[in-house]
Design a protein around this nucleic acid. Sequence first.
RNA 1: GCCCCAGUAGCUCAGUGGAUAGAGCGACCGCCUCCUAAGCGGUAGGCCGUAGGUCCGAUUCCUACCUGGGGCACCA
Length: 553
Amino acid sequence: MTPADLADAIVAAVGRAVADGDLDVTVPTTVTVERPKNPEHGDYASPVALQLAKAARRPPRAVAELLAARLAAHAEIARVDIAGPGFLNITLAGSALGEIARRVLAAGATYGHAAKPRDTRINLEFVSANPTGPVTLASARWAAVGDALARILTAAGFAVGGEYYVNDAGVQVARFGASVLAAAAGREIPAEGYHGAYVAEIAAAVQAARPDLLDLPENEALAIASSEGLSLMLTEIRSTLEGFGVHFDTWASEKALHDAGALAAAVDDLRAQGHVFDADGAVWLRTTDFGDDKDRALVKSDGAPTYFCADAAYYRDKRGRGFDQLIYLLGADHHGYVARLKAIAACFGDDPATHLDVIIGQLVTLTRGGEAVKMSKRAGTFLTLLDLVDAVGVDAARYSLVRSSLDSPLDLDLDLVTRQTSDNPVFYVQYAHARISSLLRNAESLGLAVAEPQAADVALLTHPREVDLLRALGEFPRVVETAATLRGPHRVARYLEELAGVYHRFYDACRVLPQGDEQAGPLTDARLLLVAATRVVLANGLGLLGVSAPERM
RNA sequence: GCCCCAGUAGCUCAGUGGAUAGAGCGACCGCCUCCUAAGCGGUAGGCCGUAGGUCCGAUUCCUACCUGGGGCACCA
């Protein structure tokens, strides 16, 4: 019985108490079930009686007694104690906990995933860095987190479309094109242009494709330098991200929105909704109606649409493609966008609370030997995602980027990162997986296969370390669910560290395979089942983070 | 000035109102004749920024303040 099953049983007990006329409350749809730290508090604990006491107008302990009597009748519950102010401390029947291992193996790669799909289609936009340079370390966090979140939301049953918005229109692109052309011609890069060494490489590649580049009229050459350079840059960005294991279902082009007339259509739409006004020769959206601190211009007085206008058109485009909820994963430097995006949603007649979710992640700060390192894409002073991967590999890079809360700034010490390998917690988790794999290989060579799930007697798993491990395995589905709901992929990473620790302690205390002239027995089978189940959960969890689960280390 | 985020062990950080607040790293002391020691056990280390408030119960929610990071365009 998993914690989720137990929660259902408690809800049912409340329902029966109400039906019997012993309790006068509305039956909750969900109740809190915790894994107590203190083993004396049973396998699971619930404060449900404390929470219901007020509504029931009964002392918490009296409510607890009503529920305890009904819960104790459950076949899979051995004992229910009432403790402290009214906690229910629940001890499961001998085999009920062990059944978790059986269930994990039966579910395999789908253990931890939602039982049934949800009907919400989610669009998740992340990275969306300007395609005027390589993927920097500043964007790397969003790549790792966004991709993990997409996997977690998918596991939680949502239909998810991962999306990269390519800003291939506007001033920065023109500056980039001018820089590429200048580099090709051997001229000095304009001051406001891009000064990284990669610009020369792009320029050489553009010239290789268009040997006539420098003979063309300036305007034509500039257009080619822009479009060809951008296309080459984008190819590099895509391959970098693919190599990092990060997948996007859609690469959306801002230029395509312009070309399709989507911006004008969006303005018309907004005007029809009654939120557009004209002032000072410009066209404005009255975003202050929906909580923004100032109204935003859609079209400038010179007739050119603003970037904000493209944002509105893009929002409308995504919704038009059938997505029910749009998630934007943005860095804290874009926090000012939140109010505006909400206003865009509201101005289109949507409810920002349901159709929009803007996640703000704190920035990655880089230090070297304790001193801050500043990066600028334009000045060409930056480190790339590739630099990081070259230094530590994909697994360690992804893991260190995804294991901290988005609300916390992430500090990468470059001296540490390039040296650091074995003190990354990812190895602690991967090692547990490799250790299990090795153990199972040994079992196989001894002729001991993991017993058919039905065959092993899981009731034999009573050692405290075995019980700890079973309880940890039972947590996984709730961890996935919580990580999805709160948009917190780091929760999966932290859970895996916990699970790996519990496994290592089990391994230390409980011998699995027979040694010397011992014979394999029922306990061997049960422990092999438990170990195999642990490997499944470790692999599933690492998979959600896009980190490999090695068979050997 | 206004808005967002953070402040928890020496350091880096977990902890969506529950019982005695945790992990990794660092420090110190132990454990491989045996399934991978990238592991395990133990010791030391805390006014959960400060002050109020709500609650049976607050590290968690609310208010104010202090400190640090980020943001406030007819830029992109």
